Amino acid sequence: MAEITEPPFRPREKLLEKQKYFQSIHKHTYLKGRYDKITSVAIPGALAATALFLIGRGIYNMSHGIGKKE
């Protein structure tokens, strides 16, 4: 049975270069990529801020009787 070898997706040199880069950074593992701050910090922060705003608005409206259905 003949073994079929595929060319790698990235050249080995590029892969080793990226490995060295990521191993040299002393940040948290989930913040090492280029756009990781956006996905790990900004989006959850925006969701939390929106949720807190809506909860606060709901409590304010309930305490002042705004928006009641008759």
Results as ranks from 00 to 15, higher is better:
Tyr30Gly: 09
Met62Ala: 15
Ile55Asp: 01
Ile4Val: 11
Lys14Asn: 03
Lys37Arg: 12
Ser63Phe: 12
Ile38His: 13
Ala2Thr: 05
Pro8His: 04
Phe22Tyr: 15
Ala49Glu: 11
Arg10Ala: 12
Pro7Val: 06
Ala48Cys: 02
Thr39His: 06
Arg12Ile: 12
Lys32Val: 03
Lys18Thr: 08
Ser24Ile: 02
Arg57Val: 11
Met62Leu: 15
Ala48Lys: 05
Lys32Arg: 10
Pro7Met: 06
Tyr21Met: 13
Arg10Pro: 01
Ala42His: 14
Gly65Tyr: 02
Tyr35Gly: 00
Arg34Pro: 00
His26Gly: 06
His26Met: 02
Arg12Gly: 02
His28Arg: 15
Lys27Pro: 00
Ile25Arg: 13
Arg34Thr: 10
Gln23Asp: 14
Ile4Cys: 07
Gly58Arg: 00
Ser63Arg: 02
Ile59Glu: 00
Ile25Lys: 15
Pro8Lys: 03
Asn61Trp: 12
Lys18Trp: 13
Lys27Ala: 09
Tyr35Thr: 04
Lys68Ser: 02
Tyr30Ile: 07
Lys69Gln: 12
Gly45Ile: 00
Gly56Ala: 12
Ile38Lys: 09
Ala2Gln: 08
Tyr35Asn: 06
Lys27His: 06
Pro8Leu: 02
Phe53Ala: 09
Leu52Gly: 12
Arg10Ser: 13
Met62Val: 07
Glu6Asp: 06
Arg12Leu: 04
Gly58Asn: 07
Arg12Met: 07
Thr5His: 15
Lys20Leu: 05
Lys20Tyr: 07
Ala51Cys: 02
Ile55Ser: 05
Phe53Lys: 03
Gly67Ser: 08
Arg57Trp: 12
Val41Thr: 07
Gly58His: 00
Ala42Ser: 13
Arg57Ile: 10
Ser24Asn: 10
Ala2Gly: 11
Phe9Ala: 14
Lys32Pro: 00
Tyr60Arg: 12
Lys27Thr: 07
Pro7Gly: 00
Ala48Glu: 03
Tyr30Gln: 13
His64Arg: 03
Leu52Met: 15
Lys69Thr: 07
Gly56Leu: 05
Ser24Phe: 00
Glu6Ser: 02
Ala48Asn: 02
Pro44Ile: 01
Glu6Ile: 05
Ile43Glu: 08
Lys32Glu: 06
His26Tyr: 10
Gly65Lys: 01
Gly58Val: 01
Leu15Phe: 10
Pro11Leu: 09
Leu47Cys: 14
His26Lys: 15
Pro44Phe: 02
Thr29Tyr: 15
Tyr30Cys: 08
Ile59His: 06
Ile55Gln: 04
Lys27Met: 10
Lys27Tyr: 10
Ser63His: 05
Lys20Ala: 13
Met1Pro: 03
Gly56Ile: 01
Lys37Ser: 08
Ala49Asp: 09
Ile59Lys: 00
Phe9Leu: 08
Leu52Asp: 03
Thr5Trp: 15
Gly67Asn: 07
Gly58Ala: 01
Thr5Phe: 14
Ile66Asn: 04
Phe22Met: 14
Gln23Trp: 08
